[in-house]
Design a protein around this nucleic acid. Structure first.
Length: 480
RNA sequence: CGGGGCGUAGCGCAGUUGGUAGCGCGCGUGGUUUGGGACCAUGAGGCCGUGGGUUCAAGUCCCGCCGCCCCGACCA
């Protein structure tokens, strides 16, 4: 929009080139930078702080649901990685290998973990002997490496940060319950803290995790109309238990294999945050995870001393309750700072100038709506709390509306192609359940089944592709 | 792995028929400013990605190599 562009420089408008907008925003907001290593980015302090906030909020949820953190090695011996056939096949093309220690060639190559199922399972087989040892509920915060052919900051990089939960259970029901429980933890986290609406559902056979029995997902919709998988939770069944020999003696005296799950979210969520909320001025961060929730900008005027003094006092009084920063730098003008912090997505700006000092007030400006208001310094703290809550709420509501507006229903394949081509977004359609139709649709339209949603999945017509009997109504989209 | 693009100051770029490197921003210093990206003065900053070739002379022409980015296929 024209008036949105008025203040911003050096960020390509979204509708001109969305990819470029995304990159510009990341670099200009100093979230990340390209490194000297191909496909690897540096998380700069501002970007890393968002990840830390996410970690904190998620970790709390993991602990509340009974999980404990641990840490497993970065390296996985080749023989371990190869034990589960489907798993190796899925990951082999993108594994980075360590072949030498110093100048000596290793007897066995070591994979730099692309995911940790195998190394963790090898330990679980040692630790689990009795039904009394179950469930095992472990999470790991780690980096993983996948040698990707094409990369993109936060969304797909050769090395990325994530958490991976790995649990082992006594029964199939327990494992399924855990899988769904963690999916719900993700949904709640992403919607509540990141203000990103998602659709919960199950992945098709084609789209499921290599080695899993069933894969569940939460799918988000970005502003360019492409879907992004925001989190996954897998019921691994007994696939890994059998190849890694994780057995326990049950109450009935029988030796049984455990039922396992794994689940993860990654720094890709930062990308989701950018592309769900951002606009032509740059980032727009939800208050719950914003590194700076409110920025105080003094406007010095004639009597700069009293303005600075008051600004410092305000900052001091707000620091305990909010992530507040005061920008006292003298070499930038207030106008420059306004733009800078808007670009960085700071939810709330607090301006204080000579007029405000005199009237015991401040000027507050919301990043989400641009609304300006004059507030007394006396009840500033309370007011900020209310506003941050309201901004969080409003950002979720706006994103929700966007998803609704960009979700369509296709009754015929013509309608389907047209929707994917012109409107993008989520397209709901009936599906016969065959892999052939799924792949043919992908071939023709580049759209994939994002998930079989938990809600509203009853077919109400024939398969959108083959015209045969539909088994489910599913959600299609082009995706990242 | 296919298609495209780019390597010249920290960043973004210009560099004509080959003649020894320039602009904007940023950065340093001094001053004036400051309610939506201020201004003046004055400075610093270069193995022109890399190796070879042609030439009296190469940022520029030729050949090779390396790197990165973007768009696809594959994947979180």
């Amino acid at each position: 929009m024209a008036d949105e562009n008025q203040f911003v420089k050096e960020i390509t408008p979204m509708d001109e080139d969305f990819s470029q907008w995304y990159i510009d925003t990341i670099l200009k907001a100093e979230m990340a930078d390209y490194s000297t290593v191909r496909g690897c980015i540096v998380f700069r302090p501002y970007g890393y702080a968002i990840w830390e906030n996410m970690q904190h909020l998620l970790d709390k949820r993991f602990k509340e649901t009974g999980h404990k953190n641990a840490y497993f090695p970065l390296f996985i011996p080749e023989s371990l990685l190869q034990k589960e056939a489907e798993h190796v096949e899925g990951f082999a093309p993108e594994v980075a290998w360590v072949t030498h220690g110093g100048s000596d060639e290793l007897a066995e190559r070591l994979a730099v973990r692309p995911t940790s199922e195998t190394i963790i399972c090898s330990m679980y087989s040692k630790w689990i002997k009795s039904w009394r040892d179950l469930p095992v509920l472990i999470n790991q915060w780690a980096n993983v490496v996948r040698w990707e052919k094409s990369t993109r900051p936060f969304l797909r990089t050769s090395e990325f940060l994530w958490q991976e939960g790995h649990t082992a259970h006594r029964t199939e029901e327990d494992a399924e319950e855990e899988t769904l429980k963690m999916l719900e933890v993700y949904r709640d986290f992403v919607e509540t803290e990141l203000a990103i609406p998602v659709i919960k559902g199950r992945k098709t056979e084609n789209e499921k995790f290599a080695g899993a029995l069933r894969t569940y997902t939460i799918e988000a919709l970005m502003k360019d109309g492409k879907a992004l998988q925001a989190g996954t939770s897998h019921n691994l069944g007994q696939h890994f238990a059998r190849v890694f020999d994780i057995q326990f003696l049950d109450t009935d005296g029988q030796l049984k294999y455990v039922w396992q799950t794994s689940w993860g979210v990654s720094t890709r969520l930062i990308g989701a945050l950018i592309m769900t909320h951002g606009d032509n001025r740059g980032l727009k961060l939800p208050p719950r995870v914003a590194p700076i929730q409110a920025i105080i900008i003094p406007i010095p005027g004639q009597d700069s001393e009293s303005v600075y003094a008051r600004a410092k006092k305000l900052a001091g009084s707000l620091k305990d309750r909010y992530r507040v920063e005061l920008d006292m730098s003298d070499e930038k003008t207030p106008g420059w700072k306004f733009n800078e912090y808007e670009m960085k997505g700071v939810p709330l700006r607090i301006e204080i100038g000579p007029r405000d000092v005199k009237n015991n007030q401040v000027v507050l400006v919301r990043r989400d709506t641009g609304e300006k208001m004059i507030v007394s310094q006396d009840d500033l703290s309370t007011k900020i709390g209310e506003l941050l809550e309201d901004i969080q709420r409003n950002m979720f509501a706006q994103a929700k509306t966007f998803v609704e507006k960009n979700t369509s229903v296709a009754k015929s394949f013509d309608e389907f192609q047209n929707a994917i081509e012109s409107k993008r977004g989520f397209v709901k359609a009936n599906w016969c359940g065959s892999s052939e139709c799924e792949l043919a649709i992908k071939e023709k339209t580049m759209a994939t089944i994002r998930c079989i949603p938990f809600e509203d999945n009853e077919p109400d017509g024939e398969c959108v592709h083959c015209g045969g009997k539909a088994s489910k109504k599913v959600i299609f989209a082009r995706s990242y």
